[in-house]
């Protein structure tokens, strides 16, 4: 067994539990990638719980996905950290469910965890300077094993590109630079259009009426004697449509897991 570098030594000064989990994950990366992913998921979950406890105590959920989404909504996580944490959550979940993963998957998530940990350490102790250390890849047990990771590497590249694409498709603005470009421009256009409409005496919709309708409790709306039937129909339709999108995304993640499992099996057991 080759030496394992201590990429997470800096965490000792911040939180002993996190340092321990990170080291355990690092130690498992070549010998037991699934355990590595499981430990990394636990690491991210612990960080998320700490952040929720200190900044969003009103959040009533222990689900990691929900915690990360809430932290992102509250702008406590930026997009990069959130993407990395979600990737660890997803791959950790697959590992927990017994789906085999190649070392490459675990290595990528370990590298993600290293970046997140440095960010987290600088955030939990505001003003503290975290000496940024580059991630040192733990050596493979043998050069043969390293060579056989190429297929797994190519798969991980494809998965990262596809996950990024999914996110780009889902957001109204693909990234911050797009947002910075469009928002001032659209606000200016809207103000100009608004002025023209006001000068022309065009009536605006009654925002209060819209608000009153929108502030109705959903249950009240669904049971409404006149609107209820239509509202229930719309709810069924929307729920089915959303489930369809979610199933497509889940099917894709499951497809990744199967491909990883196939590679992991062929690497570990020489199976075709």
């Amino acid at each position: 067994m080759s030496d394992v570098p201590d990429n997470f030594a800096f965490l000792d000064g911040y939180d002993g539990r996190l340092a321990k989990l990170a080291r355990q994950a690092e130690g498992y990366v070549h010998t037991d990638p699934e355990s590595c992913l499981f430990k990394l998921r636990l690491l991210v979950e612990t960080m998320a719980q700490m952040m929720v406890r200190s900044s969003l105590p009103q959040l009533n959920s222990n689900d990691l996905g929900a915690m990360l989404s809430a932290l992102e909504r509250a702008q406590l996580l930026d997009r990069r950290q959130a993407d990395s944490m979600h990737a660890i959550r997803r791959d950790g979940n697959a590992a927990v469910h017994g789906i085999a993963a190649p070392t490459t998957t675990a290595m990528r998530r370990l590298r993600d965890a290293h970046g997140i940990s440095q960010w987290f350490a600088s955030m939990v102790k505001r003003g503290a300077r975290v000496a940024r250390q580059p991630f040192v890849m733990p050596d493979a047990p043998s050069p043969e094993a390293a060579a056989s990771q190429r297929e797994a590497d190519a798969l991980e590249d494809r998965i990262e590109i596809q996950r990024q694409r999914t996110r780009d498709a889902l957001l109204v603005f693909r990234d911050q630079s797009e947002l910075d470009l469009w928002v001032p421009r659209l606000r200016a256009e809207l103000e100009a259009l608004s002025e023209v409409a006001a000068t022309a005496g065009e009536t605006s919709i009654d925002a209060e009426t819209v608000e009153i309708m929108m502030m109705l409790e959903l249950e009240q709306l669904l049971e409404h004697p006149v609107l209820g039937t239509s509202a229930r129909g719309k709810q069924r339709e929307a729920t089915a449509a959303l489930s369809h999108v979610r199933r497509s995304l889940d099917a894709r993640e499951s497809d990744y897991a199967q491909q990883r499992e196939r590679i992991a099996r062929s690497l570990h057991h020489g199976e075709p």
Binding site: D63, A66, S69, V210, M213, L221, K234, Q235
Partner: peptide, 17 residues
């Protein structure tokens, strides 16, 4: 009618929190 649909959809598409 659009408001009615929007009210329902806001609930369906909102993240759990």
């Amino acid at each position: 009618e659009c408001c009615l649909s929007a009210r329902v959809l806001a609930d369906v598409l909102a993240p759990p929190g």
